[in-house]
């Protein structure tokens, strides 16, 4: 019964993520309107057949902007996770497998870095350089390395004393082969669920930072920016804030449903 429920979760997650992905892919080639095109007659226009999600304060079509904006959000999330995972695996694998002084020092530094909530770290990194999509990705990526490194390290610590690792060494496998061919595949299970969680956190962080105005810069639309722009029009045009928010929730919900299946 438990398995069945988990399967259902997984399928719902797949469907939601699939729809989101489809929307983003379609947005690459087609949007109902030019997301940058302003129309002063449509300022804060409500929901209509022509503009199903209404228009923003410049009269731009919200649906078109969401389609493009969620692409930015997802790309930033993906890139962050790729950077975090790649360096996390390298650092975690070497420190966990070899241990020793380098491990001690690196892990102390990771501990200290983990004391900064990742959004704060990214906030400062980006605040000191200039806000731009690339800097945002770099900042979030760096901020996510310590947590991935920790996870990979603890998995390597767990695995390195297993008998199958000893057997592999006895059968002539070198350290690098043991690390990346024998041990790494066994961390996939833990790693993949933390990658999904990491992706969600990255999406949240991107949206949060763009909301604060130091993430994705105009004219690129992003879900977080749209919500922050919408704040001033909350009385006259609540849809302006609600629709990007709902899309953001759906992106996160889909991934977390898939993730809960993996746990």
């Amino acid at each position: 019964m438990k398995r069945k429920k988990k399967n259902l979760n997984f399928h719902i997650g797949l469907v939601i993520s699939g729809i989101m992905l489809l929307m983003i892919l379609v947005g690459l080639f087609y949007t109902p309107y030019n997301p940058e095109a302003m129309d002063s007659t449509l300022k804060n226009a409500g929901i209509s057949l022509a503009h199903p999600f209404g228009c923003d304060n410049f009269g731009r079509d919200i649906l078109s902007r969401i389609m493009v904006g969620s692409r930015t959000t997802v790309i930033v999330g993906l890139a962050t996770v790729v950077i975090g995972t790649f360096f996390g695996i390298i650092i975690g694998a070497f420190t966990g497998y070899f241990g020793g002084l380098a491990d001690e020092i690196l892990m102390r530094i990771m501990d200290a870095l983990l004391a900064f909530p990742s959004i704060l770290l990214a906030l400062v990194i980006i605040g000191l350089f200039n806000p731009s999509t690339w800097n945002l990705i770099m900042a979030l990526g760096i901020a996510f390395i310590p947590s991935f490194a920790r996870i990979v390290r603890s998995e390597f610590l767990k695995c390195k004393n297993m008998d199958y690792v000893t057997a592999a060494k006895l059968n002539g496998a070198g350290d690098l082969r043991v690390m990346f061919v024998h041990i790494l595949p066994n961390t996939i299970k833990v790693l993949s669920s933390s990658i999904l969680i990491g992706f969600n956190n990255a999406v949240l962080a991107e949206a949060g930072m763009s909301f604060l105005g130091i993430g994705v810069m105009p004219p690129d639309p992003s879900l977080g920016r749209m919500m922050s722009e919408a704040q001033s029009y909350i009385f006259s045009n609540p849809g302006f804030a609600i629709f990007p928010g709902v899309v953001l929730i759906l992106i996160i919900l889909g991934i977390s449903l898939i993730g809960s299946y993996l746990e």
């Binding site: 969600n200 949206a207 949060g208 919500m227 704040q231 953001l248 929730i249 996160i252 977390s256 809960s260």
Partner: peptide, 16 residues
């Protein structure tokens, strides 16, 4: 499952 996915700032906007 749904509540977990609500970013706090969007939750704030909804509450507002």
């Amino acid at each position: 499952q749904i509540m977990m996915s609500v970013p706090s700032f969007f939750g704030g906007i909804l509450i507002t």
